[in-house]
Design a binder for these strands. Structure first.
Length: 278
DNA sequence: AAACAGGCCTAAA
DNA sequence: TTTAGGCCTGTT
C-alpha cells in the first residue's frame, strides 16, 4: 500500500484491499452514499475508485488526523485474507469480498446506530440516522454542499422523547435517549469501556437498555476496534449453517480476527446471488 | 392484507 | 436457561 498526498486528496495505491463497494456496502456503516460521499468524525470525504486503489478527497490535514485511522489503514488486510483463506470454508466468501475493511467508527455513533438497526431494513435505518443528524448534528460543508455531523450523546441527552419523535424510530427511541443520557452524564464511559478486554466491554454494553448480544457485538467490532467480536444476526445464522457446518462456537474459532471473518461471510451470504453485485 | 424486518425486553416455565 | 409474545414503523 502506497500513500500519495496532495493538497485536496490522498491517493491510496498499490493495494487490493480497499474496495469502496464492499467497504461501504457490507453493512457496517450507514452514512456513505452510493457515490461514496460520507460523514464521520465531524468530517466529510469522497472516495473515488482507482485502478489499484482509491482517491480520498478531503481536507488535507483531516486525512492524517482522522481518515487514516477511520479506514484502518495500518492493518494488513492482505495478510489477514491469506491467513483466513487457509480455512476452506471461508475461501469463496473472501474471494468475493476482497477489499473489505472494518471501519473504525466512533463508539457513540456505532452504539446509537446499531440500537436503531434492530429489527429494521437498511434504508429505514439510514433514513432515521439521517433525520437524527439533520435535526441535532452540526452543519458542515464539503464544496458548496451541506452535510450534518452525527450528534453527540450530550446533544441528544438534552432532548425529550417528544423531541425525538420525528425520527420515527418507534420503540427504539427510548433506548437511544437512555443511552445518550448515560453516556452524557458519565455513568457509561465509552472510552473506558473501549479500553477493556472484549468480554468485559461486552458485559458493560449489555447493561444498556436496548442493547443485546447482537448490538453489543456490532458496537465492539465497528465502534471499538475489537476485531475478535463476532456479531450473529439472522443473516449470520444462515451463513453459519451454510458455510461453517452449524458450529455453535463459530465466533471463537477465528481468534482475534473473528470479526473480519464474520464480515466476509456476512457480505457473501447477503450478496453473492445478486446480479448487480459481482 | 398480513407478515416481516440486520433484536430486545419482560414474564413465565 | 430457554421460550413466547409484544413492541413502533415502513415495506412487500
Amino acid at each position: 500500500m502506497l500513500l500519495e498526498r496532495n493538497s485536496s486528496f490522498v491517493d491510496i495505491k498499490n493495494t487490493d484491499d480497499f474496495v469502496p463497494k464492499h467497504i461501504f456496502g457490507c453493512g457496517q456503516c450507514f452514512r456513505w452514499s452510493q457515490d461514496y460521499i460520507g460523514v464521520a468524525g465531524g468530517h466529510v470525504a469522497r472516495v473515488v475508485p482507482l485502478q489499484d486503489g482509491v482517491r480520498v478527497l478531503c481536507d488535507s490535514n483531516a486525512f492524517d488526523t482522522f481518515w487514516y485511522d477511520y479506514f484502518d489503514l495500518s492493518r494488513d488486510y492482505t495478510r489477514i485474507r491469506e491467513t483466513l483463506k487457509k480455512d476452506v470454508r471461508l475461501h469463496d466468501a473472501i474471494t468475493f469480498g476482497r477489499g473489505i475493511r472494518i471501519l473504525r467508527q466512533e463508539p457513540w455513533e456505532a452504539l446509537c446506530s446499531f440500537i436503531i438497526s434492530q429489527c429494521n431494513h437498511i434504508p429505514r435505518i439510514m433514513s432515521i440516522i439521517e433525520t437524527l443528524c439533520q435535526m441535532f448534528g452540526n452543519r458542515i460543508y464539503f464544496g458548496d454542499q451541506e452535510y450534518f455531523t452525527f450528534p453527540s450523546a450530550e446533544r441528544i441527552a438534552q432532548c425529550t422523547l417528544e423531541d425525538l419523535a420525528p425520527l420515527r424510530a418507534g420503540y427504539r427511541t427510548k433506548y437511544i435517549l437512555s443511552a445518550a443520557q448515560r453516556v452524557a452524564d458519565g455513568a457509561f464511559d465509552l472510552q473506558a469501556v473501549m479500553q477493556m478486554a472484549t468480554q468485559d466491554a461486552r458485559r458493560a454494553l449489555l447493561g444498556l437498555s436496548g442493547v443485546g448480544n447482537k448490538v453489543a457485538d456490532c458496537v465492539l467490532l465497528f465502534g471499538m476496534g475489537k476485531t475478535d467480536a463476532f456479531p450473529i444476526d439472522v443473516w449470520m445464522k444462515r451463513a453459519i449453517t451454510e458455510f461453517l457446518g452449524n458450529e455453535n462456537d463459530a465466533g471463537t474459532s477465528f481468534g482475534e480476527v473473528a470479526g473480519i471473518a464474520q464480515q466476509y461471510l456476512f457480505h457473501y451470504i447477503r450478496n453473492h446471488n445478486r446480479e448487480d453485485f459481482q
